[in-house]
Computed example of a mutant assay.
Amino acid sequence: MHFRKATENDIPSIVTLLADDELGSTRESIEDCVVNDYVEAFAEMEAQSGNQLILAIDDQSVVGCLQLTLIPGLARRGMKRAQIEGVRVDRRYRSQGVGQALFEHAISIAKDEGAGLVQLTTDKQRADAHRFYERLGFTASHEGMKLLF
Rank of each mutant, 00 (worst) to 15 (best):
H105F: 07
R135A: 07
G73A: 06
E85W: 05
K111F: 01
R91L: 12
L136E: 02
K124D: 03
G86A: 13
G78H: 08
F138T: 01
L136K: 02
Y133G: 08
V118I: 12
G116F: 10
L74N: 02
Y93I: 09
R131L: 09
T121D: 14
L136Q: 11
Y133V: 03
Y133S: 09
G114Q: 05
K111D: 06
H105M: 00
A75M: 14
Y93M: 13
G97C: 14
I109A: 09
A82D: 04
A127W: 02
A106M: 06
K80D: 00
K111V: 10
L102R: 02
T139V: 10
E113C: 13
R91K: 15
R135W: 04
L136P: 03
S95G: 00
E134V: 02
S141D: 13
T121H: 12
Q83I: 00
G114E: 04
A115V: 07
D128L: 13
Q83V: 00
K124T: 06
T122M: 14
Y93W: 12
K111T: 08
D112K: 15
T121M: 14
I107A: 07
V118M: 09
A82Y: 02
G78F: 11
D90R: 10
M79V: 09
Q119Y: 10
V118E: 01
R126E: 13
H105S: 01
Q119T: 13
T139R: 04
G73Q: 15
Y93R: 11
R135Y: 04
F103N: 03
R88E: 10
R92I: 05
A127Y: 09
R81Q: 14
V87E: 03
G137M: 09
L120M: 15
K80A: 01
Y133Q: 11
Y133N: 11
T139Y: 01
R81I: 12
K124C: 00
R135G: 04
S95L: 00
E104R: 10
E113K: 12
Q100L: 00
A101D: 05
R81E: 14
I109N: 05
E104D: 11
F132K: 05
D123A: 08
S141P: 01
R81K: 15
L117E: 13
E113P: 04
R77T: 08
T122A: 15
A106T: 08
G137P: 09
K124G: 00
G137L: 10
I109Q: 11
R76V: 09
T139K: 06
F103L: 15
R77G: 05
G116I: 10
V98P: 03
L74S: 04
E113T: 01
L74C: 06
K124R: 10
Q96A: 13
M79F: 04
A115D: 07
L120A: 09
G114A: 05
R94A: 06
G78S: 08
R76M: 10
F103T: 05
G114Y: 06
D128S: 13
R88C: 12
V98E: 00
R131M: 11
R94D: 07
K111I: 10
R135V: 04
T139M: 01
R131N: 13
L74Q: 01
E113W: 03
G99W: 07
E134Q: 15
V87A: 03
T139A: 08
V89H: 05
K111S: 07
A75V: 15
G73S: 13
A140Q: 08
A140W: 00
H130Q: 14
A115C: 15
K124A: 03
G78Q: 05
E85H: 08
V87N: 04
R135K: 14
I109G: 06
R91Q: 15
D90L: 07
A110Q: 10
